[in-house]
Design a protein around this nucleic acid. Structure first.
Lengths: 272, 272
DNA sequence: GTCTATAAACCGATAGAC
DNA sequence: GTCTATCGGTTTATAGAC
């Protein structure tokens, strides 16, 4: 009986996926506003009423697509971050780590300085990798990007569940800066902030349980908005006849964004 | 006969405006993707077929709405710029200008320094005023904003005419920075740019006939993208539960953007 | 230029048989 | 869970009378 139920649920989830896949195709063809349960059913060879067993309404299907999109984007960002969690090894060298506190023959101070430089380099690499991964995903899934970062779908009210998955990219970016700050690698901006902005930043920091100076958090939000501003402009056609070297421009803008939140590029290493 | 034609054309343009007004209402209710000529006609008490005399197709109506929106936004930006074209007079003082080269009793050098500070202040004020005007317009016309800066309308292909009106806000921002640069007021960023980005910047500068260093132009594009990234996040709900003090945050972000393109805030005047 | 009438589709959602 | 049938709407677009 559990086997039967297992089979049933497998079939159910397979059909659910097929429905979402077809819905994504229609998203690309007609846009979210015109997503039609009936057309999905027709394309799948089902009766339209059968779909209601899987999604009680059109909005529920839309919600599933939105959560999927946010999740896929968040996963891409987190993967990019984790792939850069270790300092990049120079190509051709072994990746064996030196013992953590071991003497290296050089002075402790120089060793610590080099470790700091490596950590700073890693933080910067993570920041850029996350941004690039987000862009790559957006370019590969432009219609899903439009679904989550474009105009709201008229008449659709996003349930709270979507906001959790929506936060993942922002959290990944904050995490990189938080770690850099904890390691003392952050060059903090010193600027006067309006009280209301400070209050927002403090509330946000408390809610996310990250300890960052308000000015850094404020700049992070600005950087977050600019990241998606750049992507929206590129994807929605605002860069046509303005920016041709899209990738190069993006990389350039992203590393400036890193600087604006205090991630500093380590100077060229003066190793032998 | 010309009087008759005049009357006819007046009636025609009045009806055209009525159609567009009603279409804008529906834009708010249903979104651009579902804009329906028939519904517009119904609401106006006309037969649907009558609309085809004014707009040959739904796409033509959309184009008119898009051009109108870009134009209104551009006008708002230009008005804000022009309203700050003169240095703000201290309240309560007369606005009479001193003769241009006249001796003021102070040293020439001090007078010139003060003029420079005033000009810098004016440039910064213009930058912020443009950004704020853009935001105000967007908040007042969220659906038209979504029409031009949100997801592209599926199946709609924007004719080239839209791109001209689309450029006005960007041109206003560039103009402020261009003037500041011409007056020697710009603190130029010194950073290495990828060749491809330099090439884009040079091409853009040549096309718009502005002389600005490539690094400044690159940053201007980034600032332009961030401005609309901020607005899209605010309008499309991404700031919900993240940023509460929307206006204060925006002003803060915008003045940082000004700094990023090289507009420097003049120090507090040390006048008596 | 505006109307009626019409064609030929489409939609979300539900009822009820199997 | 899937089907047919159905309700009560919707759409773009055209033909032809006035």
């Amino acid at each position: 009986m559990t086997a039967i139920r297992g089979a049933r649920e497998r079939a159910r989830s397979e059909i659910t996926e097929a429905i979402k896949d077809e819905a994504r195709k229609q998203l690309a063809a007609e846009g979210a506003a015109k997503l039609s349960l009936r057309a999905v059913a027709r394309e799948l060879g089902m009766a339209s009423s059968a779909l209601y067993r899987y999604f009680p309404s059109r909005d529920d299907l839309l919600t599933a697509l939105i959560v999927d999109a946010y999740t896929a984007l968040g996963v891409a960002a987190e993967r990019a971050r984790d792939a850069n969690a270790e300092p990049p090894a120079a190509p051709g060298t072994t990746t064996s780590r030196r013992p953590e506190g071991g003497s290296t023959g050089r002075s402790e101070k120089a060793g610590r300085g080099e470790a700091r430089a490596r950590a700073a380099e890693r933080a910067l690499a993570q920041w850029c990798a996350i941004c690039t991964a987000v862009r790559d995903w957006a370019l590969a899934h432009p219609h899903e990007y439009a679904l989550i970062y474009g105009s709201p779908v008229p008449g659709y009210h996003a349930p709270h569940i979507t906001t959790e998955s929506a936060a993942r990219v922002g959290l990944a970016l904050i995490g990189v800066v938080r770690d850099a700050h904890a390691a003392g690698l952050l060059k903090e901006p010193a600027e006067p902030l309006p009280d209301a902005v400070v209050a927002d930043a403090l509330a946000l920091g408390a809610e996310l349980d990250v300890e960052l100076p308000p000015a850094v958090l404020a700049r992070l939000i600005g950087a977050w908005a600019q990241l998606f501003g750049l992507l929206s402009f590129e994807l929605f056609g605002q860069f046509n006849r303005v920016v041709e070297a899209r990738s190069a421009f993006f990389e350039q803008a992203v590393s400036q964004l890193a600087g604006s939140v205090g991630l500093v590029a380590p100077g060229p290493r003066t190793s032998t």
